[in-house]
Design a protein around this nucleic acid. Sequence first.
DNA 1: TTGTTATGTAAATGTGCATTCACATCGGAG
DNA 2: CTCCGATGTGAATGCACATTTACATAACAA
Lengths: 212, 212
Amino acid sequence: MQTKKRTSVRKEEIVAAALQIVGERGVRGLTIAAIASRAEMSDANIYRHFKGKREILAALGDFVGEAVMGKAVRVAARRIDPLAKLAAIFRSHTALVAATPGLPRFIFSEELHHGDRQLAASVAGRMGHYVETLGGIIAEGVGSGLFRRDLSPRETAITMLGMIQFTALRWSISQRSFSLEREAARLWENFEKLLLESAAAGRAGEKTMEGA
Amino acid sequence: MQTKKRTSVRKEEIVAAALQIVGERGVRGLTIAAIASRAEMSDANIYRHFKGKREILAALGDFVGEAVMGKAVRVAARRIDPLAKLAAIFRSHTALVAATPGLPRFIFSEELHHGDRQLAASVAGRMGHYVETLGGIIAEGVGSGLFRRDLSPRETAITMLGMIQFTALRWSISQRSFSLEREAARLWENFEKLLLESAAAGRAGEKTMEGA
DNA sequence: TTGTTATGTAAATGTGCATTCACATCGGAG
DNA sequence: CTCCGATGTGAATGCACATTTACATAACAA
């Protein structure tokens, strides 16, 4: 009647199903029954592969943490200029959110941060690591003179991450009523300017948009 | 045995109790029983004053929306320079979050955005209004030449709001493990620089921090 | 083949929670 | 003072959900 699969396979199926459900029905809708139904197995079978719901949440946390951070760290190690690194990270983060709409909600959900101290700490740690990685890239840009000299790397990194997260949350909340890509493009274009010296200032503020 | 009070009074007590609970136990912990206990009344009595939980959530949404937006609009109308306006809004928003730790969680909670279409729309609308208000102030600063000429008002407003929200969420998630005020001060100091022309650029990049 | 283990399920169990019910009693209008 | 509507409560009620139980059966080694 049923096809049996190895538990490693089932775990992946369960995590994938859970991610879809969070995207569609939110973390509130992430019930064992919903996961089981989506992954085409019985509720009880979930417990053959995970000790309980908490363990599923932890697996989700690991998955998305690895997806976001892994990419950022790889980009940071490339031999391209800092602005290109930040742009790449921004783009890939945005793309990940677009592909996994449940992600922003999940990252900040109480289900994740309330029950499990260890899981909460792990996510917080990853977020701190992310900020450090971005901060490092920004410091690099400041040091090389590409970015404004007066930028504070850590605070600028937080500002950039806040811009991403806030937009992701707004998108999620609004039922994806706007184009995440378009909005992200606009935001990045503006943010990039903030990182660099003003073109106008280079010419000592003369002759820039006389009218307006 | 009990002192009876007018329903208008009870409504206020219930909203106040709910806000406290969200701050302490999150939106997940916001149960009718918890509210009733905190407001010192029976569970059933809650229903004398609110039709149901959804109506309580709506009242909370109105309350915090009014608190945040009301202040922002009043500040925007003052006769001070745009930078001072933004700083005042930033400070008051931060102070409100510090006084009402449940606020960031609540604003983005699924409980708020999932069940009730109308409530979700109302909150989204208020958020858009907030962005517009900030954007207006920034446009003012750009127009007067106080801010960088190349700022995009709306995108810069979203960036600023993202910075606030992300920090508020991190603070909430981390069990308030850092000083919100200190972090906010650092972020604002940096953001203010981003809005203005670089001091270094004014002098064409010469002689600024030779050592480093 | 046979036995063992991992994998699978339907049905029960128990809990937490929103909401309702049936029955008081306070406080003001007359 | 005397009602009556507004306010108050303990005890149901019912549902949604995580988890457990008791019982199959596929997969595979020997």
